[in-house]
Write a protein that binds this DNA or RNA. Sequence first.
DNA 1: CTACATGCAAAGGGTTTGCACGACA
DNA 2: TGTCGTGCAAACCCTTTGCATGTAG
Lengths: 164, 164
Amino acid sequence: MQPRTEGLQERMKRFAEGLRRSGVKVTHQRLEIFREVAKSGDHPDAETIFRGVRGRVPTVSLDTVYRTLWMLIDLGQLDTLGPPHGRVRFDANMNPHHHFICLKCGRTHDFYNEEFDRLRIPGAVKSLGSVKTAQVEIRGICLRCSKQAKTKPKRRRLRSKEGK
Amino acid sequence: MQPRTEGLQERMKRFAEGLRRSGVKVTHQRLEIFREVAKSGDHPDAETIFRGVRGRVPTVSLDTVYRTLWMLIDLGQLDTLGPPHGRVRFDANMNPHHHFICLKCGRTHDFYNEEFDRLRIPGAVKSLGSVKTAQVEIRGICLRCSKQAKTKPKRRRLRSKEGK
DNA sequence: CTACATGCAAAGGGTTTGCACGACA
DNA sequence: TGTCGTGCAAACCCTTTGCATGTAG
């Protein structure tokens, strides 16, 4: 269950390098916001990251946290969990199935695969809690979105009007 | 890619029965809201469901949609996609890994499993779009939450204060 | 020095709640 | 008929944006 990642030190160094290479400024805030996400075992929400960073950078503001997180996602240094965009999506399919999630529009399609239905839960997972379901989540860009990829938006929006 | 589910007719019937057995009233709105989620191939958000139902029940209100969706989740007739609660969660782990999501508090833990890293993407999925990542999502109740399961809350909240 | 990043405060949008009316059992 | 469900509108909370100030390069 040990994360097979380089140490936090190394990651911070590579991160700063990445910022420089992308031509954006390496600020105290950006370093600390990234550190906060990178060091946490679970996957914090913006508010939690904010509180953590505030311990070290008392003047940081919540909107800087949001702006930075989005920038880091654009640079490929971070990801969000689950469907993108802030809306909750509902699923009435109570049969074994799996998901293809479009990272652009957030639309999610079911697919069926017997092999995936039979995944064996590793013992290590049982020590985390009681398991209810297991499914495969595949993320990518759906056909509709790759077609209309004419204008690459400079910045993705968390809560957009898209998605049916 | 055909859903291996019973027809919509059957599901509606089982649904109404389920409501009766749970001792809640079988209203027009509840039937139509469930139908809207059940018939849709993708996984709609509340607003989309609302618009769909409004075509058949013009007086329905958005808050009834929310209340009903939550009730159906409590009754086990529906699920949400991704972490519960409305907040976006961030992930700095760019190495292959998988997720255990607690359905109660929304906390998400990484775990590692070489077998899961090697999942073969089914051909059928490629027709949905271009694939970027594939990971296993296991849902259940984490240890912390099963311990403090003293008081079963009558109604879960979408946006709660919990989660670190 | 100059462009880019930050902080502030206010707006925005999705979700929830209190209350009085309406409808299932 | 009584109780539970609904609609309305206002509240709430998370997230985003405009603008003036601060700072990395």
